[in-house]
Amino acid sequence: MNAYLYLALAIVAEVIATSALKASEGFTRLGPSLLVAAGYGVAFYFLSLTLKSVPVGVAYAIWSGAGIVLIALIGWLVLKQPLDLAAMLGMALIVAGVAVIQLFSKAAAH
C-alpha cells in the first residue's frame, strides 16, 4: 500500500481521536475515552508504516499541518468555535509550508 495512503489514514484517525478528547471530559466518560485511545493507537500504527518510506520530518510536517487544519474545521463546524482571519491566515501559511516541502524539498524525495 502507498505510504501516503497510510499517512492519510493516520491523519484521519488522529483527527477522530483529538475530536473525541473534548467529549471525553477529561477521560471521565468511557465511550469517548476509548475512542481517543483507539484513535491514537490506529494513528500511530499507520504513521509507523508511513515512516518506512517517508522521512520523519516530511511525514510529521504533513501530519501536523493537516491535523491542525482539520481539527480547526471540526471545531468551527461542529463545536461552533470561531475562526478569525488571523487563525485562517496562520493555517494557510502552514499548508503553504507543507506544500513547499512536498514540491521543492529534496528531503521529501528521500
Results as ranks from 00 to 15, higher is better:
Leu9Pro: 00
Leu9Ala: 08
Ala10Trp: 07
Ala10Asn: 12
Ile11Met: 11
Ala13Phe: 00
Glu14Thr: 01
Val15Glu: 12
Ile16Ala: 15
Ala17Pro: 13
Ser19Phe: 14
Leu21Ser: 09
Leu30Arg: 06
Leu30Asn: 08
Gly31Glu: 13
Ser33Pro: 03
Ser33Glu: 12
Leu35Val: 15
Gly39Phe: 11
Gly39Met: 05
Tyr40Asn: 02
Gly41Tyr: 12
Val42Asn: 08
Ala43Gln: 04
Tyr45Asp: 03
Leu47Pro: 05
Leu47His: 09
Leu49Ala: 02
Leu49Met: 13
Thr50Gln: 08
Leu51His: 03
Val56Gly: 01
Gly57Pro: 08
Val58Ser: 02
Tyr60Gly: 01
Ala61Met: 05
Trp63Asn: 06
Trp63Tyr: 15
Gly65Leu: 00
Ala66Gly: 05
Gly67Phe: 06
Val69His: 05
Leu70Trp: 04
Leu73Arg: 01
Ile74Lys: 06
Leu77Arg: 13
Gln81Phe: 07
Asp84Tyr: 00
Leu85Gly: 02
Ala86Phe: 10
Ala86Gln: 14
Gly90Tyr: 08
Met91Val: 10
Ala92Thr: 13
Val95Gln: 05
Val95Phe: 00
Ala96Phe: 11
Gly97Arg: 07
Gly97Lys: 12
Val98Ser: 11
Ile101Gln: 14
Ile101Asn: 11
Ile101Gly: 11
Gln102Met: 15
Gln102His: 07
Gln102Ile: 14
Leu103Tyr: 14
Ser105Cys: 11
Lys106Glu: 15
Ala108Gly: 10
Ala108Asp: 02
His110Leu: 15
His110Cys: 02
